[in-house]
């Protein structure tokens, strides 16, 4: 008799199981992804943060993806060995490292779409290097829409200044031969205001903290929610356990918050250096 799992895997490792008990109904996932994309496009267009990618932006994304590959296949697994299994739900260095690297990339590129593009490039690369395109294009869609879109929404919301790095006027005198990098004026208000909340936001350490929180919380939620709640059963018939999903969200929240904030500071530093 043909093993039932054989049928479940279907083409390219996709079981296509949409009737697992507890699974998030696919129209909800589809509608969320569609609405989130429309919303992203709407606010990006409204506040003028939609701008065309330049070649150098694709270069930066490629460089970031290369770091993510090295992290995921070399550094991340090394660090995860130090994490006791009991704590693995709380801290996964593999995904946290990727999160931080992408924060750096979005800090440098600062254009709506870079979050989704970054995840897409990484996903294809990871297939080339290790996963052999199994489960594609589902993983691609999952990573772009579950994670990448969060970063893009933040870029759109901050009008292209995800970590407060702006383009205020400055004098470029440093030393002989030195040229101040563009955008090196430091942190400016995300809203451009000079008083009240604007003045609060203009404090150098405030925006990276907010950015880390705003992106860290959805990141912690998106993984357990979308993967365990929808994509795992869709891909290979994974069991949907809502208690585990909720626990997963709570457990990974602190590490994503901490790494989100640290990563935002690093991203602010790198984007300041590179201009």
């Amino acid at each position: 008799m043909l093993n039932i799992d054989m049928i479940k895997m279907g083409f390219n490792g996709i079981a296509g199981n949409l009737s697992e008990p507890g699974i998030i109904p696919w129209p909800i996932v589809a509608i969320y992804f569609a609405l989130a994309s429309l919303f992203l496009f709407y606010i990006a267009r409204k506040n003028g943060s939609l701008s065309r990618f330049k070649t150098v932006d694709y270069v930066y994304v490629g460089i970031g993806a290369a770091f993510m590959i090295v992290w995921n296949f070399f550094v991340g697994p090394f660090l995860d060995k130090f994490v006791p299994s009991g704590a693995a739900s709380f801290i996964g260095f593999g995904s946290l490292g990727q999160f931080v690297i992408l924060l750096i990339v979005i800090g440098v590129v600062r254009k709506v779409g870079v979050g989704m593009l970054g995840w897409a490039i990484y996903d294809i690369l990871a297939d080339i290097y290790s996963y052999g395109f199994g489960g594609e294009p589902i993983y691609l869609i999952y990573k772009m829409f579950a994670f990448g879109i969060i970063m893009d929404l933040w870029i759109a919301a901050t009008r292209g200044k995800p970590f407060g790095i702006g383009s205020g006027k400055t004098s470029n005198a440093t030393d002989a031969g030195a040229k101040a990098p563009a955008g090196s004026s430091g942190f400016v208000s995300a809203s451009g205001a000079s008083a009240g909340i604007g003045s609060f936001l203009s404090k150098p350490k405030v925006i990276p903290v907010i950015a880390g929180i705003v992106m860290g919380i959805p990141y912690a939620i998106a993984g357990p929610l979308f993967f365990t709640g929808f994509f795992a059963p869709l891909l290979y018939g994974g069991i949907v356990d809502w208690q585990a999903i909720i626990f997963g969200m709570y457990a990974s929240l602190p590490s994503f918050l901490i790494f989100g904030i640290i990563g935002s500071f690093i991203a602010a530093r790198v984007s300041k250096v590179l201009g």
């Binding site: 990618f53 070649t55 694709y58 270069v59 994304v61 490629g62 460089i63 993806a65 290369a66 770091f67 590959i69 090295v70 593009l117 897409a120 490039i121 294809i124 690369l125 080339i128 290097y129």
Partner: peptide, 16 residues
Amino acid sequence: PILFSIMVAMRTVSFV
């Protein structure tokens, strides 16, 4: 452009 980005990434892995 996406293929270009992947090409840059594949070359960069070695430099990283």
